[in-house]
Design a protein around this nucleic acid. Structure first.
Lengths: 350, 350
DNA sequence: TTGTAAGCGTTATCAT
DNA sequence: ATGATAACGCTTACAA
């Protein structure tokens, strides 16, 4: 592998000149530049970022720590990050924490286990140190579920952005908007003339659940609809919760005409429970999901849901991080990306 | 950020000794080692891999080029790679080519477009050069669909392993076993007493289609079942193909009792087509998929399918690569990981 | 506009 | 067992 010295020799110039050509620093005569470029091409010279990084004490490397690359949300977020980084010449170092192998059953509300697990914290610290050894200039931490992860991450000297997760008020984060997303869903159901709208929530101690519930309540109130406690069921994000709680709702003396499940997995449980009671969807019951998982448009009926704009979250996290890197501005940036409503067949006007 | 010199000073030893401690080279007295370790901890010293890489002219970095991280297969493969790399102390540099944004409609057989697209080849070469600038020691290329990608990748001086893709006979690759996977499906259908087994294939010019078709034919012949040309339909991996071709099959004078679709997406099309003809699945028609996509276990009926063992493919690719790196052995290794059968409700014994 | 040379943080060779 | 020091490939004053 050739070095800058080989190029300089071949072009008959000094290494400084070659360096100036490579880094487009100007101050090189047109003709000299051509000679250098020609030599670079001839030798098929590839600059050594390692040596450059050592000298400049800065790299165009950014680290991604993803809690679980197999979470449905992760690949879109990473995709967004990569596309922005490629554009600006940054290299991405990926670390996968694989949390789902380290806690009981995914997805669960018991991420608390993680926060208290010494083993997990040590694993994160090792991974961060490893990334730091590569002198990454910044870090994006991608959660499996938006929640406060501040206790997991040690204080770092490099900028860090939380995507699909958040930390303290001093930290930057990029997330979708739970409140607005839930509002989108409930607004749509009301627009479809539903009044008896039940909700199947995630665990109450979860931040997204709480925000979405708030969106639900606010929208009902705004529309002068009675807010019925028996229409609120608490699940744990699983398919089985949707199935079970749908049955509970339909057993009510005044069953709802529409059910808003806080994630698509529970919504599918709701669909199947309704089917098993020989209900026809959406004629007998409208069902609204949240997440816009893949394949939900091929379900029968296709699932009306809310898209989280995950790729945008990724792009934006990278943007926030790279701005911190280039402007040294350290004011925290807590971005909320609006969700997008995906109307589909599982909701019908009554 | 502290350097090895700071540690040496604090511990009252030379930098060489500190280096020997860090790299566990032996030849350091127990007592000296303790002093050094203590100093490292005290300063919270993090070794600079960049400087080390410059000196040793070798890194523990491996590059991943993934054609599309949003392909259903990619994240599992990457997960596997990461888990192996973490264990052996390698850092992963991720590059996402995003092919689906660069060709018409995914997934398609027209990946040929890519091979002939100058723009795409240039993009790959730029990305490879960028990775090479970081002096990665090896490369894993992950395809969106197993096929010959040799025309896309320039000859490199570092080892490269193709995962979920392959190249020439001189190149190493790790894939699932199309032939065995198809055999698994057809064997199971026959075991469930089906004789009239139709197949909805992918494009005939696709290698996986061809291999799976071979598995289908072989298994029928082994079991003395007539091989009927009208039971073979050619689709293009899309949902719509499954839907349309299912109807064609059911319109036959002697319709099949079981349909094996070569991917889950087409299988879902088959399910929906059958439902739209008021057929009951699996009572009136058994349906077998291939891929084991997420959510297929929540379909009604749940989809009987074949799992590609993608994570294993990832682990194995990393293993093959790292062995090349550490043993300098360059004999190509073309691994086929056996698929796993996933019995579910969409297939029933008759 | 171009060249010279020091130095970034390590490792490795050679002394001691 | 430990230390002194050159060298890895590059950037960047500073000199010319």
């Amino acid at each position: 592998m050739y070095t800058i010295i080989d190029v300089a020799r071949l072009a008959g110039v000094s290494t400084a000149t070659v360096s100036n050509v490579i880094n487009k620093n100007g101050k090189v005569a047109q003709k000299t530049e051509e000679k250098v470029l020609q030599a670079i091409k001839e030798l098929n010279y590839i600059p050594n970022h390692i040596a450059k990084g050592l000298k400049t004490n800065s790299t165009q490397n950014i680290g991604i720590i993803v809690e679980d690359i197999n979470a449905f949300s992760s690949s879109d977020v990473i995709d967004g990050i990569c596309s922005y980084c490629e554009e600006f010449g940054y290299t991405v170092h990926l670390t996968n924490l694989r949390v789902h192998q380290k806690i009981d059953t995914p997805p669960t509300s018991h991420y608390d286990q993680l926060e208290t697990s010494i083993e997990f914290k040590t694993s994160i610290e090792n991974n961060i140190n490893h990334l730091l050894s590569s002198r990454i200039s910044g870090l994006i931490y991608i959660g499996v579920h938006p929640r406060d992860v501040s206790r997991l991450i040690p204080k770092l000297d490099i900028p860090i952005v939380y995507a699909y997760a958040y930390a303290t008020e001093e930290d930057s984060s990029v997330n979708y908007d739970d409140f607005q997303g839930a509002k989108l869903a409930v607004d749509y159901l009301i627009q479809m003339n539903h009044q008896k709208i039940a909700i199947i929530s995630g665990p109450i101690n979860s931040f997204p659940s709480h925000q979405r519930l708030l969106g639900y309540q606010t929208t009902l109130i705004e529309n002068g609809i009675n807010y019925l406690p028996e229409y609120i069921k608490i699940g744990n994000w699983h398919y089985e919760d949707g199935y079970r709680l749908c049955n509970e709702l339909l057993d009510l003396s005044t069953p709802p005409t529409a059910i808003f499940a806080m994630n698509d997995l529970m919504a599918i449980g709701v669909i199947n429970a309704a089917k098993d009671r020989s209900l026809c969807i959406p004629d007998d019951l409208s069902i609204h999901g949240f997440d816009n998982l893949r394949l939900t448009d091929y379900l029968r009926p296709s699932l009306c849901t809310v898209d989280l704009q995950l790729k945008t979250i990724g792009i934006r996290s990278a943007k926030v991080l790279i701005e911190k890197l280039t402007t040294q501005n350290s004011t925290p940036d807590q971005v909320k990306i609006p969700c997008k409503h995906i109307p589909r067949d599982s909701v019908k006007s009554i």
